[in-house]
């Protein structure tokens, strides 16, 4: 830095302390290093699991039934169980979450009632998954007599996903330009007609992204599921049967040291599933931002 540039005066202290160096060189290096480290950790985790798990990923592993508590054989029932459980929880949570968001953005103005709803949603978002697990166990498994089942697990997961879906849906509904609503109302459309034919269609991509992201979190959830969906290794015949989802199976294999190799394989399947879901979400979002930029809105 040249002394005449005047920047020395702006942050005189900094310069005085290290007269020979550009101010912030160490800081910049640290900032760069932390970004690098963060990405390195991510790449390491995904790479590590995929590389160690790849060896096990055979059709027999993916489509076979577990033998000897999972020491041998495959993980087919867990794949099916995870898929059904996650889909069902999305099917329950999505209408409720989107409905709540529509209610908050289109049907009420800021007031006591909307504050209560928002408080409920935000508080729910902060509750740890283990508490959801406890609640699901007490309420769905025992009180409502659903037992350890896909249904109990899905309802618990749905409660957990609700805040995410509400928040992302609300954001995308609010980003729909208000002039769309005015236009529809000015043409004599009712509120419900305006919401369903103009507002919701414009917000769909953002809503879908939010739902997919919530689904990604649900796929990997363990603590809330283990006490509500059980840990049965059998292939579920209906939603009233218990299942052992992939993360639960993985947890049991790894923690009880049953088979490290199959644990890696299960983790790899889990990570691939989560990555696919995430990519689907970003793909949807990306397509939207592209369309938005074309219309200049």
């Amino acid at each position: 830095m040249t002394p005449s540039s005047g920047s020395g005066r702006v942050s005189g202290l900094d310069v005085a302390r290290r007269p020979e160096r550009k101010p912030g060189r160490l800081g910049m290096a640290l900032v760069r290093a932390s970004a690098f480290l963060t990405v390195a950790v991510l790449v390491f985790i995904i790479g590590y699991v995929l590389v160690r798990g790849a060896r096990v990923l055979t059709p027999r592993f993916l489509l076979g039934f577990p033998e000897k508590m999972g020491r041998e054989g495959g993980i087919y029932p867990s794949i099916v169980g995870t898929f059904v459980l996650t889909s069902l929880s999305v099917a329950i949570a999505a209408p409720l979450g989107i409905g709540t968001a529509v209610f908050l953005t289109e049907y009420t103005s800021e007031g006591l009632f909307s504050r209560i709803v928002r408080f409920g949603t935000e508080s729910l978002a902060g509750i740890p998954s283990i508490i959801f697990g406890l609640f699901g166990f007490l309420f769905f498994v025992i009180r409502l007599g659903m037992g350890w089942s896909i249904l109990s697990g899905s309802l618990t997961l749905a409660a957990m996903m609700l805040p995410t879906i509400v928040r992302t849906s609300e954001e995308s509904l609010r980003s729909v330009p208000d002039i769309y609503r005015e236009t529809a109302y000015a043409l004599g459309a009712s509120r419900w007609q305006t919401v369903t034919s103009v507002v919701l269609p414009s917000a769909v991509p953002g809503i879908v992204t939010g739902v997919i992201l919530a689904m990604g979190r649900a796929v990997g959830e363990t603590a809330a599921v283990i006490f509500t969906a059980g840990s049965s290794l059998r292939l579920p015949g209906s939603i009233f049967d218990p299942v052992r989802t992939l993360p639960v199976h993985f947890y049991i294999l790894a923690r009880e040291g049953i088979s490290l190799e199959n644990a890696y394989g299960t983790a790899a399947v889990l990570i691939i599933a989560v990555l696919l879901v995430d990519f689907a979400a970003y793909y949807t979002l990306h397509r939207v931002s592209k369309r938005r930029s074309v219309t200049g809105r």
Partner: peptide
């Protein structure tokens, strides 16, 4: 970085 949020917690533990 946001993908990091999607990795199941059991995998981190493992």
């Amino acid at each position: 970085v946001e993908i990091l949020a999607g990795i199941p917690s059991v995998v981190f533990g493992f």
